[in-house]
Design a protein around this nucleic acid. Structure first.
Lengths: 339, 339
DNA sequence: TTGAAAGCGCTAACAA
DNA sequence: TTGTTAGCGCTTTCAA
């Protein structure tokens, strides 16, 4: 297999120290020696043993990302895009990405403890922040470097990037109200997620400001999956009068909602308008194409990763907290109410 | 931060060796000592430094997974499910999962070389195998442990799990033929992917056997994305007579195809039937719900990971090669041809 | 400009 | 049953 420093040193009749320093580009190595070393290392296909480097430097050059999965049939385009962003940016900057999949619950903090205490990773990325988030409490308490995608309503000081979900949902409500809707239902995500609260607040506040009635039975809590959107809306349609529009807290639930509406032979955008949140690529290709609030997931992932790496490199953060303004993308799933 | 072995040893007035052995459960430690050590370690929150373990044991307890991404807007439910399966199974067995995202091309092998030669991971998982796959050639040549999701037509001996794509596509064709379709188009994936060839072969062979005409202009190569399915089918619909059915090599392209059909005011399942391959969760919630060939991605991911870990543990593999039979799931996107 | 030596935290052969 | 010692492969003082 690949050579170790020792072998390169032997071949060149140098000490391991010199080879190491030459490769690291230290200035106290004769230029000629440096060249000999570098080219020989290249020739022999040298790749450093990271475990040894890691042990010596006390730094793993790796970041951890624990995905809060739920069922086994976990399939959310949101996460694949997030991961691509994190992975690409981390890789570009020479960091590895360590992924674990652990459902929220008691084993979650244990996973964080293992990743951090074992020195497996130098920093972590936390997504889908929750109220009184135990992960954030843990990391803050231990002074472990991390950056979150998602804010926290509690008074904790930590770096994060978040999308203004209240504003995004406000745009959706205003759009529907302008189209003439008055009976608007809302499909929230799990209440414990911070973004669910924000988006819900955007809905409630805007409805109130516009003088729209909010019926409690029309504000439902789902699981952010297609099936939960589907089932919730299936029931919703039985009410009389039924809502003329449904806003879902994410696109997956919006798709489920559309399916439920269509199953009843109703027209999306006519009988019932549907709007989502995320703007995953599929939103442009559903039938009808989904009106939804766009958030730049890939860029956010890149940004979060970048902030974390700056932190790890001991560089200062220009902004510890960044709020992204989302924007509504109007497509075909919303229109004037028929009735 | 967390204690090291040395500190535990000092506190208990034992040697580091004894503490290490007690924690590892070696039998040559007095039961009483073992208990003292274990409970003190627990109490002090001991977590081993993996870099040190790794260096000593010459084993990383990590597996590598390099995702062949394409654009930045990478968002494929197929991969998130795959990753969940790999991640969960690896985690269950005490292995870390190291993810990189590298597009196919010259930098890809370099990424493999770094992961393997640096001893970052003990084994790798390869997905979306290609013809003359350089990744497989590299790993085989170096004798590096890996398991692939996807076979290889070349004569290379390596462990893999694959889905019988020829059979899956055959089922789709037979289903359409039975419904009365004769003018069937096919949207292939990139030709360099092994599974594309298999699925295409299933299409061509079955069409021939059934005595169906195959028009070359109706066999198109796409990129496995919604947009490519959309654009390809957009053009296809101009031909006269136009196809009454389209089979896509994956669900994402099938969604794009449906969107293109619907944009022209045509009826899916009536004017044009559409079938996919994968059966991602969204397939059940598209409008209309997508007829598609189901492959158990999560289980396959689990299986592949399991095989790899057996390999890494030096255990024998019952079967080095496993072929999974897919099955067609008939939903609403296919029906009798109208014209 | 180079090399010898120590040490990162752990495991394992060997001795006591 | 426990401790001493060496060493995994690398980086980094310190001395030459």
């Amino acid at each position: 297999m690949p050579p170790r420093l020792k072998e390169i040193a032997e071949v060149l009749d140098l000490s391991v120290t010199t080879v190491s320093r030459a490769l690291a580009g230290y200035p106290d190595v004769a230029e000629k020696t440096r060249q000999r070393v570098v080219s020989k290392a290249q020739e022999m296909g040298y790749v450093p043993n990271v475990a040894a480097q890691h042990l010596q430097r006390q730094k793993a050059y790796a970041i951890g990302f624990i995905i809060p999965t739920f069922g086994p049939r976990f399939s959310d385009p949101f996460f694949s895009e997030l991961m691509a962003g994190i992975g690409n940016e981390a890789g570009r900057q020479g960091y590895d990405l360590l992924i674990s999949t652990v459902p929220p619950g008691p084993k979650e903090i244990e996973a964080y403890r293992l990743q951090t205490y074992s020195h497996r990773v130098d920093g972590m990325i936390v997504v889908r922040t929750r109220h009184n988030d135990p992960r954030i409490a843990f990391l803050v308490k231990n002074g472990f470097p991390f950056v979150a995608f998602g804010s926290c309503d509690e008074d904790l000081d930590f770096p994060f990037v978040d999308v203004d979900g209240e504003d995004g949902t406000r745009q959706a409500v205003e759009h529907l109200v302008k189209l003439g809707h008055r009976r608007i239902a809302y499909l929230s995500g799990p209440k414990e997620l911070t973004f669910s609260t924000h988006r819900l607040r955007g809905f409630l506040n805007t409805m109130r400001e516009k003088g729209m009635p909010v019926r409690d039975e029309w504000v439902l809590e789902g699981k952010l999956t297609e099936s939960s959107g589907h089932d919730l809306v299936g029931k919703l349609l039985d009410s009389d009068p039924r809502p003329t529009a449904v806003i879902a807290a994410n696109d997956l639930m919006a798709f489920g909602a559309m399916a439920a509406v269509q199953e009843q032979g109703l027209q999306i955008g006519g009988d019932v308008s549907v709007a989502g949140f995320d703007d995953i690529p599929l939103a442009a290709y559903s039938h009808p194409a989904l009106t939804t609030v766009h958030q730049p997931i890939y860029q956010i992932a890149t940004m979060v990763t970048n902030m974390l790496i700056r932190l790890l490199n001991g560089e200062p953060l220009e902004e510890r907290v960044r709020w992204i303004k989302p924007r509504l993308v109007v497509r075909k799933s919303t229109g004037r109410p028929v009735s």
